[in-house]
Computed example of a mutant assay.
Amino acid sequence: MADKVRARMVERLWYVGSNEINAPQIEQGFAEMLDLLERHLSVRPYLFGHRPAYGDFGLWGQLYELWTDPTAGALIEGRAPHVLAWIHRMLWPRAEGEFELWPELSLTLMPILTRQVGALFMPWTLANEQALAGQRDVFSVQLGDFTWTQKPQKYHARSLAMLRGKYAFLHDRSRLDVVLEEIGCLAGLQPRPT
């Protein structure tokens, strides 16, 4: 059974973008995210202040799994003590106060949103969407100084469509649009022609 699981997961590495071409980007992006998140969580217990939010739960699952890996876990433990404390705190999350206001949050959250979401995730997810629409088996996209190459993922195209739907549902987007424009995500959330 272990051989079957191992074979299945090893074959999926290329599918999810884990390959020799992308390895330096994965390592650099992880280290940068740890540094940015460490700074952000050094002054608050949760992403948006003193109580957990959807963002905490979404990000925590990924970082918890990374922490259980010996290599990534050692990096977290040696480089990001506040991230590690947050990972532990999220095992039993609880409200410890109120959410913070944007002017205070933005000081350390904007670098995360700009560098990780706007500069990396949004161009990647748009390229993934275009690859699926063009029925390509593999796509490449320039992310900073690197070219990222992988097979397209239907799940992420559906996730992008859901994000667009949630964005379109908002009645007053004026303040949100300012932030989305600044981080480089506003254009990607606009409806696509069918």
Rank of each mutant, 00 (worst) to 15 (best):
E98G: 06
A187T: 15
D3T: 11
E98R: 14
V179Y: 04
V141H: 07
L163G: 02
I26T: 10
R94T: 09
G134Q: 15
R158H: 11
L176H: 15
A7Q: 15
L170A: 08
F57D: 10
K4V: 14
G49F: 01
R164V: 08
F169N: 12
L37S: 01
A95W: 05
W148L: 11
L91F: 06
P45Q: 05
T125N: 10
Q190C: 05
S106H: 10
A2H: 09
L160T: 02
P193Q: 09
G134I: 08
T125G: 00
Q25V: 01
H156T: 05
S174P: 01
T71I: 11
P93V: 10
F169R: 12
V16K: 08
M122A: 03
P103I: 04
M33T: 10
E20S: 15
R175E: 14
W86D: 00
A119M: 10
Q142F: 01
L107E: 13
A72H: 05
L34R: 00
E182F: 12
N128Q: 08
G144L: 12
A31Y: 08
R12H: 15
W124H: 13
D177H: 11
G97P: 02
F146R: 14
F146W: 14
I76E: 00
M90K: 00
D177E: 15
P24F: 08
L59T: 02
E65T: 06
A168N: 05
R6W: 12
L143D: 03
E100R: 09
G58K: 13
A127F: 07
A23T: 09
G134C: 10
M90R: 06
L34T: 00
H40A: 10
R115G: 01
L107V: 12
G17R: 07
A95L: 04
P152A: 09
L160F: 07
G17T: 03
R136M: 10
